[in-house]
Amino acid sequence: RRAIESHYHTVEISSLLPASVCSPSTKGHSKRPSTLKVFHRHGPCSKHSQDNATPSLDEILTHDQSRVDSIQHKINLNAEMDKVKDKKAALPVQSGRALGSGNYIVTLGLGTPKKSLSLIFDTGSDLTWTQCQPCARVCYKQQDPIFNPIASTTYSNVSCSSTRCSQLSTTTGNDPSCSTKTCVYGIQYGDQSFSIGFFSQDTLTISSSDLVPKFYFGCGQNNQGLFGNTAGLLGLGRDSLSFVSQTAQRYGKYFSYCLPSSSSSTGHLTFGKSGVSSNVKFTPFAASRGTSFYFIDIVGISVGMTQLSIRPSVFKTPGTIIDSGTVITRLPPAAYKALSTEFKKQMKKYPSVPAYSILDTCYDLSKYTTISIPKISFTFGGNVKVDLAPSGILIVINSSRVCLAFAANSDASD
């Protein structure tokens, strides 16, 4: 009995629902230098939660699918470009990255004196940008005052002739342009959201004792799309202009985060090795396609006591990335089918209900206060087994619809 119980989570339904008041985490944050508090964009810990434009879960999942489509497109494009390079030919390149609903935000300081900005943090993109006055074309409404470069004594524009300006081609997928000798960036995401503006440098403040001088970022003059009321985006990808690369000397390309289990609690984003848990298990990054994404290898999935029968090539052929900006994990169709089939089998005592958006395995748990759900574990390369938290297994749509929080890619080659 004890062995069986160790393969199940006993979950109070109420614990899956966000509370109306913020309960900050006592772990991680404030114990270490270079640590930022992470909170959900639409929860009570965020000052953005009062935003009237808070999307429904259905809208979030629709945006999530736009982001996923765009990631697939970008990686396929990289594969095509690799073929092109082999052939020493050239094709026109179009950038495509959906921002969708980035969901988790951190607050940083920019400029001198510093101005606080709430940015979506994203391991699936590279360029850090914020909306800038005078908003020559369009700025969307944001919660923080829009950054005014004229008011910062440490702000400068980047010249068109600088090496950093030319690096924008890989960072954004678009060649930079030039306006009165100032480098102009343009980044467009797969859902047609975009930011265009001056490529700039200024001091970025992580904490009162931790400043990054001459940080390269986009000072957006024309920003439109699904950015909510945030001030922009913090790019934590692998490319040369990402925050991670720009601060390599300071933090050694090492960062960690914890995303809270509900929108009413907080997590942390920490730069540098200091204070990382001693019980971390590491999996090697897999060979990357493109310069941005973090690839890892999934080698197996278990549900409760059952190890799913999935051929290694199902994961190996398309590959897998980890992304803080995608909401729902996408699995190859064969892997998802095995997962959902076994999950349904072990959840058969609970009444099922119709699909919701991209989520097709849903239950009516309104008559229960406590449920027992099978643990789901992922095994990554290097035999690293990771148990998902209950919040990583089920997502609550409403009191009568709770769904398995996974979805399938539409094509095995995605």
Partner: peptide, 30 residues
């Protein structure tokens, strides 16, 4: 590609050792 999304990463401490070429996970990060 498959994508490990943020719902599945909740409560884990996720550690990016980019220079060391590895990604770490630990339970109970927040």
């Amino acid at each position: 590609v498959g994508i490990l999304g943020n719902v599945q990463q909740t409560t884990l401490e996720v550690v990016y050792d980019v220079a060391g070429g590895k990604l770490g996970f630990a339970p109970g990060g927040c």
